[in-house]
């Protein structure tokens, strides 16, 4: 029975990692931008949930409202960042890293000034409190909700990339920027939209995380490392890789943690990933491409 409980815990952790990393797999994976402020876009999503709950009151309605709003808030922040800073340094990934790290610190301080340093509380709706009991197993409803949300996000993103004209343009720019431009695709516009979607997904992740963790200025820093880890292990440029990597990391962490301790599990996960990247530096799944990433 414990094994099944751990299996669920692992899948659930995987879904949290997936939500955090999904947007990053677009901006980092597809565009090659190392965006250290991705975590702060999640934080912005979480505070969106807080503000919406303050206005709406009802926890259930506000959660459902906050999800699309969080997407827009995260997306707009991303758009702003892309338009002001990142587009100037597409060929300089290391500079982007430092600049976005600085932006992350600025955003944290802004949150601290606006909302105060202490954590704030977002109440979970009544229909998400407690656990579903299945034969001695207790599956927290919030985790089931997040699992579902992650699946919905992945499916929506995959469909958007595969079946829409926009998705075709994004894939074209990723695979060969020059050729895409030569074919009449505006790579600037495509970059912006890609960044909007990637950052928006961070906002959605932030709203979801209010159900599980603390909501404070440093929320993002707790997840950014794991999110990058997922994308790197999953392979640059493929959502499939991100999904598999997030699930594998979640399961690994929860089973290692079950048989050892949380700290040791973290070490083991890192060691496994380092070893894995030695064998397969391109990650789990790699796209054939001539572009930077």
């Amino acid at each position: 029975m414990d094994i099944i409980a751990q299996l669920f815990a692992g899948l659930s952790l995987g879904s949290v990692l997936l939500l955090a990393a999904l947007g990053l797999s677009l901006t980092f994976g597809q565009m090659g931008v190392i965006n250290m402020a991705h975590g702060e876009f999640m934080m912005a999503g979480a505070y969106t949930a807080f503000v919406v709950q303050g206005v709406v009151g009802d926890a259930g309605v506000s959660l459902l409202l906050a999800l699309p709003l969080g997407f827009v808030v995260g997306g707009l922040l991303g758009l702003l960042l892309e338009a002001t800073l990142i587009h100037r340094m597409y060929r300089r990934p290391l500079d982007t890293l430092l600049v976005t790290w600085g932006v992350a610190l600025v955003l944290q301080q802004v949150a601290r000034d606006v909302f105060g340093a202490p954590n704030v509380d977002v109440r979970a709706p009544a229909w998400l409190s407690g656990a579903v009991q299945i034969g001695g197993l207790a599956l927290p409803r919030t985790r089931l909700f997040i699992l579902t949300l992650a699946i919905v996000c992945v499916v929506a993103l995959a469909l958007a990339l595969r079946a829409t004209p926009l998705g075709r343009r994004i894939r074209a720019v990723v695979q060969n920027r020059d050729l895409a431009e030569a074919s009449g695709i505006s790579s600037r516009a495509t970059d912006r939209v890609t960044f909007f979607i990637g950052s928006g997904l961070a906002g959605v992740a932030g709203v979801a995380l209010t159900l599980l963790g603390s909501i404070g200025p440093t929320l993002g820093t707790n997840y950014i490392v794991d999110a990058f880890l997922v994308v790197v292990a999953g392979g640059i440029g493929q959502i499939k890789g991100t999904v598999i990597a997030a699930t594998a990391l979640g399961l690994m962490q929860s089973f290692f943690e079950y048989s050892t301790t949380a700290s040791v599990a973290k070490v083991l996960v890192f060691v496994t990933i380092v070893a894995f990247l030695q064998l397969r530096p391109q990650g789990l799944v790699s796209v054939r491409t001539r572009s930077l990433a």
């Binding site: 980092f28 090659g32 190392i34 250290m36 990934p93 290391l94 890293l97 820093t221 950014i224 490392v225 990058f228 880890l229 790197v232 392979g235 640059i236 440029g237 380092v274 990247l277 530096p281 391109q282 990650g283 790699s286 796209v287 054939r288 491409t289 001539r290 572009s291 930077l292 990433a293």
Partner: peptide, 24 residues
Amino acid sequence: RLRSTSPHGAMRLSTVSLAVLCVV
């Protein structure tokens, strides 16, 4: 089929990002 050039780029990016992760 275009010959893949990705492993190199991917390796460099992943090395960089792992270094960043460690520092953070």
